[in-house]
Simulated assay, not measured.
Amino acid sequence: MFEVLVYVYENYWQGDACPELPRLGRKLSAAGFDAEEIQDALVWLEGLNIAAQGTQISFENAAPTEAAESSEASVHHSANSAFTPQSANSLRIYSVAEQVHLGAESLGFVSFLEASGVLPPHMREIVIDRAMAAPGDPVTLDDLKIIVLMVYWSFGEEPDALILDELCDDTEFRLGH
Rank of each mutant, 00 (worst) to 15 (best):
M1Y: 09
F2R: 05
E3N: 13
V4F: 13
Y9R: 07
Y9K: 08
P19C: 10
L21W: 01
P22W: 11
R23I: 13
R26D: 14
L28D: 04
A30E: 12
F33R: 03
Q39S: 11
L42D: 03
L42W: 08
L45S: 00
G47Q: 12
A51T: 03
Q56C: 09
E60G: 04
E60P: 04
P64I: 02
A68Y: 09
A73M: 07
A73S: 15
S74R: 15
A79P: 00
A79G: 14
A79W: 09
S81A: 12
P85T: 12
A88Q: 05
A88Y: 00
S90Q: 04
S95Y: 07
E98Q: 15
E98K: 04
E105L: 13
S106Y: 01
S106F: 05
L107W: 10
G108L: 07
G108C: 02
E114W: 01
P121V: 03
M123R: 09
E125N: 12
I128H: 02
A134W: 01
D137P: 07
K145W: 07
V148R: 05
V151T: 11
Y152K: 07
G156P: 02
E157L: 15
E157P: 06
E158D: 08
E158H: 08
D160M: 00
I163E: 00
D169L: 10
H177M: 01
